[in-house]
Design a protein around this nucleic acid. Sequence first.
DNA 1: CACCTTAACGCGAAGATCTGGCTTCAACGG
DNA 2: CCGTTGAAGCCAGATCTTCGCGTTAAGGTG
Lengths: 189, 189
Amino acid sequence: MSPKPMARPGGRSARVQASVHAAVRELEAERGRAALTVPLIAARAGVTPSTVYRRWGDLQELLSDVAVERLRPEADPDDHGDLRADLTAWAEHFLEEMSSTPGRAYLRDALLGTPESGNASRCSDYAADQVDLILGRAAERGEEPLPGREAVMDHVVAPLLYRILFRTEGLSPEYARGLADAVLKDAGR
Amino acid sequence: MSPKPMARPGGRSARVQASVHAAVRELEAERGRAALTVPLIAARAGVTPSTVYRRWGDLQELLSDVAVERLRPEADPDDHGDLRADLTAWAEHFLEEMSSTPGRAYLRDALLGTPESGNASRCSDYAADQVDLILGRAAERGEEPLPGREAVMDHVVAPLLYRILFRTEGLSPEYARGLADAVLKDAGR
DNA sequence: CACCTTAACGCGAAGATCTGGCTTCAACGG
DNA sequence: CCGTTGAAGCCAGATCTTCGCGTTAAGGTG
């Protein structure tokens, strides 16, 4: 299924995976997403198409894998020394990333994989980890009361994702900020 | 693109669309979703594959269309004579429908279509209409204060959809009920 | 009602993709 | 160093997808 739990993490398998993933990214940049096909990707990666079919099953699953990697945050959220500043800035940043044209495409691709691959949940875990980091820093500072991780996921992340995926209009940094403020207010701040 | 804005709504076009949609539903029930292919569907519908490719572009887009139809609510939400009862019952019902194995599949299929087809937003509109109905009834009864439609979408519908799509664990009727209660409390009830 | 316009369908051939069986390779363990 | 075994290569057949061209029928017009 998903290449994550590889029986043989080292050596050839890893090289093939890296090479195929790289081929996807290159070809997507060069010719656009619509032009991607398994044989094309395999040729660029220097493997045979049947290798790709065997490991990923189909193009969707492969794109889903690649998309999740692209959705992984590259850095920890900025530390502004204050929970409200941290959370609002992160929410705005998250919205900006995810609602961009490529961001939307990656999100959709990630969801496109079979549920069993766990790509969608990995995606959500990335966001949860970032939220935990922000809340953890606030706790260290002694800020209180703090909203729970799940409260932030439900009242900030979920509305943002919902609107990015199901709607197109009315997404602004102010909206993201408002969600962050509201969850803090709910927590009693 | 999407068959909705048909230049010629009546006659043959409509028959073809109905016949193809029916073929999808039949074959999905008979052989399962994984076995669906464009030529197979076309044969069952009594049309040529090229007709399907021309009208829908590819299998994904067709499945997305069919999925949206299946996600359309069949009836108005029950009237329990009270906003809290209406909203909690509707949230539980929505969760039950959408988190079932077929419900999840239809949701994912609906998202699978190109954003331009508007299938995803139509899907969200269905929920919004139901919420409007519930809130409208509460307004007629003179209940006050009422949460806004968008508040319900953000704090009830969005968390449910987020968890259905991105996670697998921890979805219970109690959770849905809690979301409904929370949005009412937020509105001051 | 006959005629015109044109979107949509049917057909078939060419090209591309997908599947499956079998062979070969190389990572890991003894 | 050698055996085991999961993964990759190769190739052929089946299936799917695209595309050009002719035909059909819906909707409009006089």
